[in-house]
Design a protein around this nucleic acid. Sequence first.
DNA 1: TGGGCTGGTTGAAATGTTTCAGTTCCGGTG
DNA 2: CACCGGAACTGAAACATTTCAACCAGCCCA
Lengths: 344, 344
Amino acid sequence: MTRNGRAPSVKDVAAAAGVSLGTVSNVLNRPAVVSTTTRERVERAMADLGFVRNESARQLRAGTSRALAYVMLDGGNPFFHDVAEGIETAAEDADLSLFVCNSSGRGDREAKHLDRLVQQRVQGILITPADPDAPHLAEVGQRGIPFVMVDRLSRAGDHCSVSVDDVLGGRIAVEHLIDRGHQRVAFVGGPGSIGQVRERLQGAREVWAEFGLPAEDLINLPTEALTVSEGRSAGERLAGLPSRRRPTAAFCANDLLALGLLQHAVTAGLRVPDDLAIVGFDDIDFAAAAAVPLTSVRQPRQELGRTAARLVLDEASNPDHVHEQATFVPALVARASTGIVKRS
Amino acid sequence: MTRNGRAPSVKDVAAAAGVSLGTVSNVLNRPAVVSTTTRERVERAMADLGFVRNESARQLRAGTSRALAYVMLDGGNPFFHDVAEGIETAAEDADLSLFVCNSSGRGDREAKHLDRLVQQRVQGILITPADPDAPHLAEVGQRGIPFVMVDRLSRAGDHCSVSVDDVLGGRIAVEHLIDRGHQRVAFVGGPGSIGQVRERLQGAREVWAEFGLPAEDLINLPTEALTVSEGRSAGERLAGLPSRRRPTAAFCANDLLALGLLQHAVTAGLRVPDDLAIVGFDDIDFAAAAAVPLTSVRQPRQELGRTAARLVLDEASNPDHVHEQATFVPALVARASTGIVKRS
DNA sequence: TGGGCTGGTTGAAATGTTTCAGTTCCGGTG
DNA sequence: CACCGGAACTGAAACATTTCAACCAGCCCA
């Protein structure tokens, strides 16, 4: 544990063990080529000195880092955390570190993070972008860094993406409500600038029309964001509708909205699902944990992450990689908030 | 955008701009010392070539990285995400990157993360450890890397820590319940190996005794973990108690437990707070967002993070830094789950 | 005229690691 | 005995950047 101000380097280890630099490096990277006795001597010296490999130097020389990065959209939404876990397991298998960054939905933060990650020369970048068409995203791709969009479809197809069929998700949700006998349904979600919100609404509309239901009975309740408090305020607007127009069910563009709506309904004395049925989207753990367990459209969160990591690793290592748009199929998880009584 | 396989270096920029390496570096690091005309020429060349500084090389030469790291205990608990946000704002102010890692409560993962972070030579490490006494934590400190424990008190005092007075938190919670007239209260939490659980219980017991209430009416309902599902199962055990022993209120060691308990109560047909009042701990956003908004003991989550970051930065830059144990005072946030009807 | 100063620029050294072409040593083979 | 081949190890180059002493050209002042 010699400590003279500066961290011990391979050179120090070499001196202590009475071997050359190269041998120390071999012990580190190709232990097979060095004889058992010297290897042990070197390892001993490392332990004595408390040697820790300097990753920057390694990376500089090797030209390649041992890390992936995920820039998530909203750390406050457990959905993204679960995606990150999926990525992490894949990264762990490949023996890579994962840096998790959080843009909090702000494009400027996102750009800053990307900038730093490029400077770090990470092996690949996974991102759920605030705006899939932002110019700073394209720049990263042009730089030749493997790049995958997570939970967003890449329209241009100039990189990989992993997403869920949101139109289908919207269809599943609303079909379930129609099945349960609802004839007037609210769609709660926004802003429309988010592609997924538009697609979930589109799916809802499609299936609504296919059942021959009048378009004006699928009521659009736009929100400013996909948050619990926006869900609450949507609840207020919903309660304010004239009773003949008031829907008997709501399909929310994500679970946070649904939880907010549920809270408002309960405090307003509405019974869920009898007075108001609710369907969410994402199936985060808190959806199942709500006082009235939420029916939700499940996205395979971890799998999304794992697949994204797989794609980025392929792009990084496979010379004839071809960009791929992986799409997953969402599934309805029926619970009490639409009248399904089942232990969740 | 010349692209010949290898990313452009300062050397390429220097050649393109017709200046020396040193000048390019000056443009990057001390723009003031270089004349306007050459600076512009160099910047132009950088833009043309798409130059991005190689951070590993910078770091190798400078000997110092531009990053902090936070190893969080449980990414699935929004509490830790909020702490991370606090850290991130402080890091941003200091113009540092923040790497967020997640140990998921597993000591081996934690050790692996620490190992990598030391290899990266990060400027400082913040951590909410699985086990505050684990040997791999001490190692980091001995290596001279600034190190702060977050939401855990450092007993030994050989590094900084930021925590909340958990005994006081327990007192506040139970005093509130006593105030509301409860004479039989359950403490839901575990495992006892977690120091905070012990301290919150201790606070509860202290105040219980001070009010002269019989010890056997403060009922201990131990759990295996601090999760929603454990909260649910505690609810089942609670419902199974003989009615004369059944508590009228529960104090949960964190909000996840409280949410689980709330869910069980609602599905079991209990009215909250009339049949069962509930107090949580942490005051995560989902506590306020629950169907019956949860009364909770608030920890200043973001502030915890900001302070921790401040301490680690001080240790990193201030030669006569002295280790500090920052302790925050928790506060009760009363909501509907204990009968306080207030817009939350 | 010459010395000193100043703003701008240069060139080389240094950072810690990996890689690779050599070198040494030895046992075995013809 | 000369030669070969392989195992083990060495030494130097290379990676991209920063830093710093040195240098240079003007310019001012004596």
